[in-house]
Design a binder for these strands. Structure first.
Lengths: 171, 171
DNA sequence: GTGGCAAATTAGGTACACCAAACATTACAA
DNA sequence: TTGTAATGTTTGGTGTACCTAATTTGCCAC
């Protein structure tokens, strides 16, 4: 009974909706030209997508006019954007990827994530940030690990600094 | 210069290739019927996909015969399967989702993940497993947190157990 | 051998998602 | 007010991915 990503939007329409949401935040209204530019598609494709989104009642759309989100569209778009931001946060601040790469991956992966996975990830990231056993120095250590692997010599003083003795090897 | 997911396969063809790979492991060869069943598509769709994969040199395919992966196909399929397994591992063992839900999400998200993100995730999971500051009890604590939130009262004895004093709030 | 059945393929059709080019509209400038 | 450039839409066409229905093939029992 796991609920699929969103309503019944294709990945593409999700992208259009998200873009409209961002453009609205950026400049009150979304224009076809800007949507096309942001998504790197032709204006013709935008026209088609807008018609589809209007049919689903997610945008207010009169030909030759501006586009705004309906209330329902806004809710869905906000949820899509949230998925995007959380994934990007994970890639950028935990996996420590470059902002652009983090964003690209978030953009491609966000459509396949269901809401349960999202909430778990949110909790996980919260916990990583809040649990006193983990912390910024831990993230820094992860960064080191990425470059050089686990070095028991570096591990010892680290453990001493939090007052723990070396554990038995796990698994 | 971030390398996109795999060769130049669509998500769908990646799924077909992965399925063939798994069926080969399971029973030496893959049969159209079984591919169709596993992916829940018609045999007609399988025929089309097999033709496409054969065109790309990823499978050995004679009409009305069995399907096997070529060397190149095998390499790509193995990589796809690896992405899948790592994501599933993350969802199941770290985000502590049910196996089926973990697998479903992995299946949908694997296609959008580039190799850099994958390697970072691998390192991250390795580090979570190996770093002595984290551990099984930490994962159990995360599980508790998922159900009840961060409880400072529960935090204190936990910290004491690793000999650390409560930190100043972070962020 | 051959009849019949299961499996695979082809044929024909739908739905998306995109494009370029032709056409329509708007808005601003002269 | 009218002309033009910018913007938006429609048209016609491509490619992908799926389906059902009809056909073909392979194989096994007889």
């Amino acid at each position: 009974m796991s609920s699929k990503p969103a309503e019944d939007l294709s990945s593409n329409l999700e992208d259009y909706l998200e873009t409209i949401y961002l453009l609205e935040k950026l400049s009150r209204v979304a224009r076809a030209k800007d949507i096309a530019a942001r998504l790197a598609v032709s204006r013709a494709s935008v026209s088609g997508a807008l018609k589809a989104l209007a049919d689903k009642g997610l945008i207010n759309y009169e030909p030759y006019s501006y586009v705004t989100l309906t209330k329902q569209g806004q809710e869905i778009a906000k949820e899509i954007d949230r998925r995007h931001c959380i994934l990007r946060d994970f890639f950028q601040h935990f996996l420590q990827m470059e902002p652009q790469a983090a964003d690209d991956n978030a953009c491609r992966m966000e459509h396949g994530m269901d809401s349960q996975a999202l909430e778990r990830l949110v909790r996980f990231l919260e916990f990583l940030r809040e649990c006193p056993r983990v912390g910024e120095d831990w993230l820094a250590a992860f960064n080191q690990y990425c470059q050089g692997g686990m070095d028991p010599k570096r591990c010892k003083p680290c453990l001493k600094s939090i007052g723990q003795s070396p554990p038995a090897p796990r698994e």
